[in-house]
Structures are given as structure tokens and as C-alpha cells.
Design a binder for these strands. Structure first.
Lengths: 335, 335
DNA sequence: TTGTATGCGTTATCAT
DNA sequence: ATGATAACGCATACAA
């Protein structure tokens, strides 16, 4: 009978104790736990069985010291409080915990300096690999040639081992959706950075091919900036693509305040399909950024790198989640 | 001149190398890095200076092995993709990283079994302490008497070292707000678990003292359940307190669909003051749950425990963020 | 104040 | 197939 779960023995049985009771050397115990090693089947089973009754498991610390590796995967992200990053993190975690690994987390607050410090910190803790989300420092991050280093949507287009969304395609999807809704005078609400620029390019390219010129308004991913951008929009705009859902919330509010009905007079498409998209009025159509899947893909790539395989970069194709804001039918029941 | 940041030497200088070049023993180098130890001031400075030029820092791995501690703080939470938990995590991280510690993260998916496994995993990694958010397993979690073990809003009311919100007070705040808005026929939309029950108690107690009886509707924290609860509300209800913002979004939608104006006909107060509260129509008044601060408080408590101080439990007093949904004035400009 | 030596829990090398 | 033993990088008791 094992002890009740809330009473963990202060000092768990060590490898020596197991070796002694099993009548073998500690080397054999070690081998019994390492699948690659060569041990007689019977011996291995006996050791493992005994280890189970003594509730012995090899200490990660000792192993790390001699191997120079841990079972840790470093994760650097701007801010775990932001839902999108949280979802990426969850995807990473779900993927690696099956293999007994766990996440060593550091947030960078979008500061390249902090990012570099964080990377150094992780390296010193002998992480087997690391995943960096939205890296600003990019190619300047410290690396070990020996360590897996994966980037999710890095700002720098030059870093290797990347997992990202096809933002250009996302912009194109939004354009197609708005055109299907009869857009004649489209607008784009953007933000700084590579990603928003790519979304804009995909959008304007498709619009240009349809003979539409795009009005532009700057933002910075906040609702407040969306509100301002929405108010600054030319009065004849009849379709808006917004580079982020939070900004889209601001744009919707601005349009309402201006007395312009969505979607009957103006159609709107956001980006990210974040948690808030289905909660807005009207429910917001949005280009879906599968944050969880990005995390899963990044973790898989890191795992592959750790086991020594190359593994190609991943470019995830977005899809569009159609809701009320882009479908030109009678507006959702007015309150 | 230090090497460019992206080229970390594969093998950084070790303690021996520093000792050799400094002309001292490795013990002295070790002492130089440990503030408690007794080294001649001049010697320490010389060693530290040399270490800097060789970019040597003591390896956490070696230190962990001999001390049985790491610089790691374990964190177990249900799901890092949920914004509230993400905010707690960020508060923890910001607090501990000043001391050079970092977060070892495991998610439990609200499963007590996984929680226990996670706790064991953390213990094996020699975390100095752990913070468990919304623990289901509660007092049954494995512990070391030697390790700091802090709970944020545990389901179990018996676990020690807790940091939580005063949910009863939160419910009372909501009641006061709705009463101030002229509530005559209030309702409460609840959810399973201790926290929602406490919010309900605080709410109904104040309402009872004001001579109001409270209509009850069950939910489970999802928007969908809020929508259903909102539709099931008695027709004469004129004020609703909802135990979570996501459910409140559903309640608002249900009220709109039923043609009932918020806040002119019905006032609504949510709970959490999550990111979505200010984005809803009308902007949702909500009892603020300062998730980030909860994380900070928990981290401080863990830090104090680690350094051997007792530290009292923390009960954070919520406040109410008043927005449009609870203020009985003309409804926000109808679209 | 400093050096020597031991041990922390492993894995890896080299015997046997 | 297995055992003895040397690292791994550090902290510390003890000796000097």
C-alpha cells in the first residue's frame, strides 16, 4: 500500500538503496531505466519492480548534471496574460508533457534586452530547447548550436526554425469576404510590425485586382486605437478589415457611435478570431489565428530538433470564421 | 570586448578555470559567489571580476544537486489559455524574476489526478516552492514539509497558505450597486463551486436585508450557459448579478433578444472584470478580480515561505468597476 | 581567511 | 550482461 498522497517521504529512496535491495550495482539500476542500455530483460524487470515498490525514480537533477540536459523546454513570450500567447503556451504544454517534459517560462514584455537575458537564463538552466514567441531580438538571441531553438512568428524574417501564420493569405481571405459582401470602398486598419504589414499586403493586393483602392488608418492593436481609427475613416467606406480583434472592437464602437449600421451599411472583418470576437455586437467575423495549433506545431518542431531531426518550417494557412459582421443581411436584432 | 550575443561559446568557463586563473581554490570561488560565506573582500572582488571577464556564472544544476533546491517556482494552473489564469501567471512571474527565479509551469486541466501528478513532478524537479491555482485536489496534494506550497483560490477551504478574493464581499458589492440602481426584483446567475456559492451568499444576504428575494438561475461560466440562464429569467426581473463575465455576455445577449433594454429596464453586474467587460454592449459593470495582484501576492507569500518566514493568508478585497450596464440612464446610443 | 576533501544522484567508460 | 569508477559543477565540514 502506498502512503496517502499528502505525505511524501522527506527523503525518497535513492539509486543506491534500490541497487542494494536488488542485489545489483547502481550502474545496472541506471541502465534499467534507460531504454537504450543493454540489460538482461529479467534483471531490468526485477529492478523496475523494486523501484516501483520503493517509489524510486531517477532524479532529474543528477541526470541533468551529467548529461548537460534537462527535461525542460524554455518558453519566452511577451506576456502570458494576453490570451493569444496563453493559448500558444497551452498548445506547447499539452504537446510536450506527454513526453515528461515541462515548461520553463520567462516573459519578455516585448523588450529585446529582456529577451536576450531570458535566453541566457534558459541556456544556463540547460533547457533541451526553447520556443520564442514574437521575438524582437530575433537572430541576435544567444544560441547553442546544440540546442533546439524554435521561433513562433518572429519579427525577424531571417531566423530559422519558424512556425507562423500565413498573414498574407489571411489578408487575402478578408478581402475576398468583404468583396463577396459587395465592398466598393474598403479600408484597412493596421498596426506596426511585420505581421500587420503582411496582412495589409494580402488585403490590398486582392482589392487592387478587384479594382478597389484601400483607405488606410493606423492603429496599435488596442481597442482605443481602433476607436480612433474607426472615427477617422472616410465617410464613404463600406467595408473594413482590421488587423486585430481588439482594434476591431473599437472600430465597431466607432461605427455605432457614428450611426453606421454593421453589417448592413458597413461590413467588418477582424483578425485573430480571439475570444472576444463572438461576444461583440454584432458578432465579429475574423481571420482565425489558431494560436493553440501554433503552439503545438512549435513544440513538435522543438521535439524533432531535440531528437536530431531537421524538420521543415511551418506556415499555417488561416481560415475565416464568418459571423454577423461581414454578412450583409438585416442587422442583428437591434436592442 | 564580449562576443556578439548570438555566439555563445559552446562550453563556458567552469569554476576550475576561474579558480586556476585567480590563483585560488574552487572553494574560494564558490564562496565569492555566496554572500553568506566568509571571504576576504579583496579576494572576492578579484574572483568576481575575473569571473565577469570569463563570463562565468555558477551553474544552477550543480548548485541544485548539492543543495536540493533549484531557483525554480512551480506553478500549477488549470489552463494557461484562460486570460484570468494567464494574468495570475504574469503576476507571479514578474514578482519572482527579480530574484533570479523562474517558473516551472504545469497545467492541470481542472483534473485532480493530473494535479497530483503535476505536484509530484515539480517536487522531483526540486522546486523551491509551488503555487497552485484553483486547486481541486486541495489538501490531498503531495507536499514536502520543507517546500513552500501556496494556494490561490483553492476549492478546499482547509488548505493553508492561501491567497484569495473575498467573494462574499464581491457579491455584496454587486447587490449594493444594483440596489442603488433601483433593483426591486433581482436575480443571480450562478455556477458550480465554492467561489460562486460565496458570491451568491454575499449577494442574497444584502438583498435580503433590503427586503428583496433573489431569483436564481444556474450556469457554468460559459457564454452559452449565460444565454440560457438569461432566457430562463422571470420576466419581471429588473437586475441581474452574474457570477462570471463570460456568462454575463450571454445574459446580455439573451436580454437583447428578449427586447429588454440594458440598463434602462434591466441592470446587470458581472464578476471578474475580465478583458471582455469593457468590450460588451453595453459596457459591463463588474466586480473586479485583480488576477495579476493575486499572482503577485501568491508569489510574495511563496518567497516569504522559502526564506523561512510564516506570512499570513491573504484575502483581497474586491472593488466594483462601474460601467454602463448598471447605471440607469438612457441606454448607450442604439446602433 | 583559505585550501582539501567529500558528497549530491546520475550516466558513461572501461573492465570483466 | 554487469560491476567498479570517474566525471558532471557545485557547496560545505573540517583542517590548516
Amino acid at each position: 500500500m502506498s502512503p496517502p498522497p499528502h505525505e511524501v517521504p522527506a527523503r525518497t529512496a535513492g539509486i543506491r538503496e534500490v541497487a542494494r535491495q536488488a542485489g545489483v550495482s547502481i550502474a545496472t539500476v541506471s541502465r534499467a531505466f534507460n531504454p537504450g542500455s543493454t540489460v538482461q530483460q529479467e534483471t531490468r524487470e526485477r529492478v523496475l519492480e523494486l523501484a516501483r515498490t520503493l517509489s524510486y525514480q531517477p532524479s532529474p537533477l543528477g541526470r541533468n548534471l551529467v548529461c548537460g540536459r534537462s527535461d525542460l523546454l524554455g518558453v519566452i513570450l511577451p506576456n502570458s496574460g494576453f490570451p493569444l500567447y496563453g493559448a500558444v503556451l497551452q498548445g506547447i504544454e499539452d504537446t510536450i508533457q506527454a513526453g515528461g517534459m515541462s515548461v520553463l517560462l520567462v516573459s519578455s514584455r516585448d523588450d529585446p534586452t529582456v529577451e536576450v537575458r531570458a535566453a541566457t537564463h534558459l541556456l544556463r538552466h540547460a533547457v533541451d530547447g526553447s520556443i520564442v514567441v514574437n521575438s524582437r531580438a530575433g537572430v541576435n538571441l544567444p544560441r547553442h548550436r546544440d540546442r533546439a531553438w524554435v521561433h513562433v512568428a518572429p519579427e525577424d524574417p531571417a531566423v530559422p526554425h519558424r512556425v507562423e501564420l500565413d498573414n498574407v493569405r489571411g489578408g487575402a481571405l478578408a478581402a475576398a469576404e468583404l468583396l463577396a459582401g459587395g465592398a466598393r470602398r474598403p479600408a484597412f486598419v493596421g498596426a506596426p510590425g511585420r505581421e500587420a504589414a503582411e496582412r495589409q499586403r494580402g488585403f490590398t493586393d486582392v482589392m487592387a485586382r478587384a479594382g478597389r483602392s484601400v483607405a488606410l488608418a493606423p492603429g496599435n492593436y488596442t481597442e482605443e486605437s481602433g476607436l480612433r481609427a474607426g472615427m477617422a475613416l472616410p465617410a464613404d467606406v463600406d467595408a473594413v478589415f482590421v488587423a486585430g480583434d481588439l482594434m476591431a472592437a473599437g472600430v465597431l464602437r466607432a461605427l455605432h457611435q457614428a450611426g453606421r449600421r454593421v453589417p448592413s451599411e458597413v461590413t467588418v472583418v477582424g483578425f485573430d478570431d480571439s475570444l472576444i470576437a463572438p461576444l461583440l455586437y454584432p458578432r465579429l467575423s475574423s481571420v482565425r489565428q489558431p494560436a493553440y495549433d501554433l503552439g503545438v506545431a512549435a513544440a513538435r518542431m522543438a521535439l524533432a530538433l531535440i531528437t536530431g531531426e531537421p524538420g521543415p518550417d511551418v506556415l499555417i494557412t488561416p481560415d475565416l470564421v464568418r459571423r454577423e459582421s461581414s454578412v450583409r443581411v438585416p442587422p442583428p436584432r437591434p436592442p
